[in-house]
């Protein structure tokens, strides 16, 4: 039952697929952004999981502790979260302007109004 012990990674894969599917399948621009967020979050969970060490604690020098979780992936993900927030803000700002310009945020309705091909 080794694969059960890797359940973090199964969650990562599931989240990744769900997010990616929403990005591709949804016509609503906000839902696409939600999907993108889930997709990115799965990668965050992936990085946090790979830093985990069984029995390890936070990397603070304490007496009697010899095993620490690797702090570097945590720091990377802090940066990646900031990037993700900026992306979501940017995407939502675009959606607001799309709504103003087209009166809708459904992709198929936008394509009915404008030929993009």
């Amino acid at each position: 039952m080794e694969w059960l012990g890797l359940y973090n990674y199964w969650v990562v894969v599931a989240l990744m697929m769900i997010g990616f599917y929403i990005v591709i399948a949804q016509d609503n621009l906000i839902k696409k952004l939600v999907g993108l967020n889930i997709f990115q979050t799965s990668v965050f969970v992936f990085f946090i999981s790979l830093a985990y060490l069984e029995g390890g604690t936070a990397p603070i020098a304490l007496e009697g502790v010899t095993q620490y979780s690797n702090p570097l992936p945590h720091v990377l993900i802090l940066t990646a979260i900031v990037v993700g927030v900026a992306l979501t803000a940017m995407g939502l700002a675009l959606v607001v302007r799309v709504q103003e310009a087209y009166g809708t945020i459904e992709e198929d309705e936008i394509h009915q109004q404008d030929d993009l091909h």
Binding site: Q40, V43, L50, L87, D114
Partner: peptide, 25 residues
């Protein structure tokens, strides 16, 4: 149409860089 083009780019570009991040992981 610049708005919707930018949005398309945002979606595909983010998927691209996130793939890069997974690979780096």
């Amino acid at each position: 149409r610049a708005l919707i083009s930018s949005f398309q780019y945002l979606i595909m570009g983010t998927v691209g860089t996130t793939f890069l991040l997974i690979g780096i992981g």
